[in-house]
Each structure stands twice: as structure tokens, then as C-alpha cells.
Amino acid sequence: MVLLRRAQRTMAQRASRAYRTVSYEAVCLMSGSLPWDLEAGVLAEVYRRRALMRQRGEEPLPEEIVRWRKEGRDDLFRRWKERLADATLWGLSRVPSATIARPATWTAEHTLAVCTGWDAQRATLTGAIGRDLSLPAVIHAMVGSEQSWAAVASFAREVMAAKREALRERERANETLPPRRAPAKGRRLETYAAAL
């Protein structure tokens, strides 16, 4: 299970251009891919049902297999919603952005519903999914329609891009500062330089 999650997380991080600190559940959500462990469970259940019918000497009808897959998919979404409700959405709490919010407010809830730095993006988001921006409501809306999914994904992309740019600018500003002191030189280095 760990190897499966690690492989999917790496691919999902690259697809969504997310930081490595973003949680597995959040990066799956951002990249639009269902968790493989849940999908594998659906496939295993369909296989188990087919095997049981074949043991009894029966062959399942294609309609039955389609129904089993649909039931499994519905169960998959239900279980994923439960897992997402417990996970930190997007992992934004670990992204430093002092230009936008103070450390005490680096949470997904704050970024999504409160932070004034995202009012324009939030207006577009609430126009698509409604005014309730609690994490369970947002997750429910995302899973409910492609339009809501696209709106939340767009909000997340814009916020993460702005936070990344703010981080880069702080790093650039720190690079222009003079060093505090010169690096220490050791005796070996001085001896080697004198021998040249």
C-alpha cells in the first residue's frame, strides 16, 4: 500500500505542480486522480464476485459486472469523501507566505474562506459552488459536478501560484543581502594554496 501511494503521490505532485509537503489526499484531489488504493479495492471486489459466481458454475452477465463496478465506484467516492474530510485540504498550512497571511493563519480554511488576499478568486469560486466554503461542503461540491471541480482546482492553482511567487520574491530579496561574514578558511586550504 505504501509503494502504491508513493508512486501515485509522485505522479500527482508532478501533474498538479504541487509542493512535496502537500498531503497524498490533497494532491490526488488537485490532480484529479482517484486514490489507487480505493480503485484497487473496487477492482478486487468485482473480481471476487466474478470468481464466486464462476465457482458456482455461473457466468456473470455484462450488466451485472457494470452494476458491480457502479456500486463499487459509488462506495469509492463515499470513502474518499470521508478521507478528504479528515485530511488537510491542499496542504497550504505548510506554505510560508508572510506577505499574505501570518503563520497562525496558514490553514486551508483561512485561505479558502477568510483571507482578504484571495477575495477576487473567492468571488469566482463562490459563484460556481455556492457560499458555504467549509471543507466538507467544498469537497461535496467538487465530487458532485465537473464545473465545481474545475472552479476549486482553478482557485487552488491561482492561490498556489501566488504563494510560490511570493516565496520566490522573498528568496530573491534574501539573495541580494550581503553575507554576514566571510567563510572560515582552514589551515589545509591555506597550505594547499601556498603550495600552488
Score class of each variant (00 low, 15 high):
A87V: 00
E71P: 00
T191H: 15
P179M: 03
K81Y: 10
D119K: 14
R14F: 03
R56K: 13
N174C: 13
R54C: 02
V42E: 10
R54G: 01
L133S: 08
S145F: 02
L61S: 14
I129Y: 07
K163S: 12
E146G: 08
D75K: 15
R48Q: 12
M53L: 13
A166M: 03
A156L: 00
R187S: 06
R122K: 05
W90K: 03
V95I: 13
W80N: 01
T116E: 13
A108T: 14
T111I: 13
A26V: 07
A193C: 13
T126V: 13
A194K: 12
E175P: 04
D119S: 11
V143A: 06
P178H: 03
V22N: 02
R50L: 07
V2N: 14
P96K: 08
D132F: 09
T10M: 06
A120M: 08
K163G: 11
M53G: 04
A113D: 00
A120L: 09
R54L: 01
L196D: 08
A40L: 11
L125M: 03
E58V: 13
L189S: 12
A101V: 01
L112E: 09
V42K: 00
R102S: 14
A195G: 08
E64L: 14
R49F: 02
T10D: 08
R164K: 08
A18M: 13
S31D: 05
L92S: 13
P179A: 08
Q121P: 02
D75V: 04
Q147V: 00
P136D: 05
E171G: 08
V46F: 03
D132V: 02
N174S: 12
P35R: 06
R168P: 06
E58G: 03
W149C: 05
T191C: 09
R164M: 13
F77D: 07
C115T: 07
L89I: 06
M142T: 00
R20S: 14
S93L: 05
I100A: 12
G117E: 05
V27H: 00
R79L: 11
P62Y: 01
